[in-house]
Design a protein around this nucleic acid. Structure first.
Length: 570
RNA sequence: GCGCCUGUAGCUCAACCGGAUAGAGCAACAGCCUUCUAAGCUGUAGGCCGGGGGUUCGAGUCCCUCCAGGCGCGCCA
């Protein structure tokens, strides 16, 4: 919905007597811009009007008179193709961006509403690998998107810091670890003993028995277990925070699974009291057969709690604390059933707010093994990407220097970091989140074509032009000179931005922003290849500077949403 | 076995909740920098939209079925 489609719907409504809102939904953008800027297919309309679609189209077109935003209107079979009055359209769009400033694209839809977004949530004592990255950057992008929709966003990092796995870590550390080594290289040592547990516990039931025992002790408050656990947690969180800082991501809460332990006994009591919990094979479950789901396991035979139990507690606690309008869980698709069960159990517990919960799932990262057959650590990917970016800067050094002058060493480091990271982030966010993504070094480390750096580069080119423009950017320009197809294309895309954010929020889908940003960057590069901004006739330069300014604004907004740096030079 | 998801160019992905001739990028080939950043632009080549039925004026998109792959299905998270 924009000013043009509104005008089209009003015009056809006037000719047919049907409601403009109903007609509006049929309006589309022709595949080939040669046909027109917007089109209205008459097929469905012809049924209610009892006329052939072609005749209907012709009749409507005969009534058309150019006015306001609509310059022209023709038929092509059953289609009515409209052409925009470019000058008027350019003025509406560019003035809006100019005057709204950074607020362009934002809305008040979520004003007064709070949304909780749980994302990233890595497991303590486990390496942060490229698989975890998806939740982190998808979640971060969603936070940015919902903030622009006016919501009060609360960022939750539901750390995996509780459960049998800590029994495993403690078992491993008691057997093979040492305090000296833990002091010297904390995380490395932790990973060493933990992976050793995995290797040796394959067919060793006693080891698992021991691990379960330690976790039970942990839940019972055993001092030794507690002290080890809290040291391990500290070490990991420190490492995670360093990484988040590097990524430019913050959280409002690091209340992980362990946080809810005091809540659990009361929860179990209440669930037993309502008769929701029943004993089954020695464990306690909520039967869900009636909803075509396997039973939800709440308490193990040894009375220890499970992931699901803690998630129920977390939901209750969060609703009490934050009174959210929405809460979304950015967690991988393998856990879909888990969340279906969670939401159903909460509903059965009588919480009307269970309807406000959503699982925002995403596909797995496949085949991310190195030659040694291990998972790829995020840190390694980042290092490799940054190094690769440094090499590119090195290779193009002379060429760049001739164009933009010497870049200081410090700035070069920052550019390499931003570009390397930009490539990784964009690669993850450009596809629909539910798709599995193939881990491919070449793809992640490519900086040309449909990549993050391509988009960053388009922004940089805007900056270059604005930097060299000596005049003042102003909204009072001669919009008539923005008459080329390339300029119209840019203006159309710029106008889409608010709707793009709206769609991204409605679908919990950051890729909508990524794809849009890429297309805007492409349009801008094509525009620059065919037209000059600076050094033209004054009124032309003024108008194109305003256009460039608009592109820069929107590109910068997209980059910020996705968590990528909008560089000035690169 | 049951359930959910995914099959579009050699590869990685689009296609605006049914519309006109299915679009990009990578890889390949051929061009374009004495003027705003060449991390760029232009061109060539590349397709039975997994197969088969159906609904419709109209299907990559909806329904059925088959095939292939992924994920999940009580004491892990």
């Amino acid at each position: 919905m924009n000013e043009v489609t509104r005008a089209i719907a009003d015009f056809i409504s006037g000719e047919t007597g049907l409601s403009a809102d109903e007609l509006h939904r049929w309006i589309e953008v022709p595949r080939d811009p040669q046909w027109g800027d917007y089109a209205f297919p008459c097929f469905t309309l012809s049924r209610t009007m009892k006329k052939s679609p072609q005749n209907l189209a012709r009749e409507i077109v005969l009534k058309f008179k150019p006015a306001g935003l609509l310059a022209d209107c023709t038929t092509a079979g059953a289609y009515i193709n409209f052409r925009i009055q470019r000058e008027v359209w350019a003025e509406i769009v560019l003035q809006r961006i100019f005057f709204e400033g950074p607020g362009y694209g934002q809305s008040l839809e979520g004003a007064g509403k709070r949304i909780l977004i749980e994302f990233s949530s890595p497991n303590i004592a486990k390496p942060f690998h490229v698989g975890h990255l998806r939740s982190t950057i998808i979640g971060h992008a969603l936070c940015q998107i919902f903030e622009r929709r006016g919501y009060d966003v609360v960022r939750l990092n539901h750390l995996g810091d509780w459960g049998k796995q800590f029994g495993e870590v403690i078992t491993a550390f008691k057997r093979w670890g040492s305090l000296e080594q833990l002091e010297a290289k904390p995380l490395k040592h932790l990973l060493e003993v933990y992976s050793r547990f995995h290797q040796e516990s394959k067919d060793e039931e006693p080891l698992h028995e021991e691990a379960r025992g330690w976790f039970r002790k942990l839940e019972e408050g055993d001092p030794e277990a507690r002290s080890l656990w809290s040291r391990f947690r500290e070490i990991s969180v420190e490492e995670f925070k360093r990484l988040y800082k590097f990524l430019g991501i913050t959280f409002d809460s690091y209340e992980g699974e362990s946080f809810y332990q005091d809540w659990l006994p009361g929860l179990i009591e209440r669930m037993r009291g309502t008769g929701l919990l029943i004993e089954s094979q020695g464990a306690w479950v909520v039967p869900l057969e009636a909803y075509q789901m396997p039973p939800a396991l709440i308490l193990k035979t040894d009375e220890a709690t499970l992931y699901l139990t803690r998630d129920i507690a977390a939901a209750e606690y969060r609703f009490e604390k934050w009174d959210f309008a929405k809460m979304i869980y950015v967690v991988g698709v393998p856990q879909r059933l888990h969340f279906q069960q969670l939401f159903k159990v909460l509903e059965l517990m009588g919480y009307e707010w269970s309807k406000r919960l959503a699982h925002v799932d995403f596909g797995h990262v496949l085949g991310m093994s190195t030659r040694r057959g291990e998972v790829v650590f995020l840190q390694d990917v980042i290092d490799e990407a940054v190094q690769r970016a440094e090499r590119v800067i090195e290779e193009r050094g002379e060429d760049k220097e001739a164009r933009i002058g010497k870049i200081l060493e410090k700035e070069r480091k920052n550019i390499a970091r931003a570009v390397g990271l930009g490539a990784i982030i964009f690669n993850d966010l450009r596809t629909k989140r539910t798709k599995d993504v193939e881990f491919d070094w070449d793809r992640i480390l490519g900086f040309e074509g449909a990549t993050g750096p391509y988009c960053q580069n388009a922004h940089v080119r805007c900056c270059g032009i604005m930097r060299k423009y000596s005049g003042e950017v102003m909204a009072a320009v001669d919009y008539g000179v923005l008459a080329s197809d390339e300029e119209l294309d840019l203006i159309k895309r710029l106008r889409e931005f608010p709707e793009v954010i709206e769609r991204a929020a409605a679908e919990y889908e950051p890729s909508v922003i990524a794809v849009y940003m890429l297309e805007l960057a492409m349009s801008f590069n094509v525009f620059l290849a065919r037209h000059r901004v600076l050094g033209e006739e004054k009124r032309v330069t003024q108008a194109r500077v305003l256009l460039t300014h608009g592109v820069k604004r929107v590109l910068a907004a997209c980059l910020e949403i996705l968590g990528m740096e909008a560089l000035e030079r690169m």
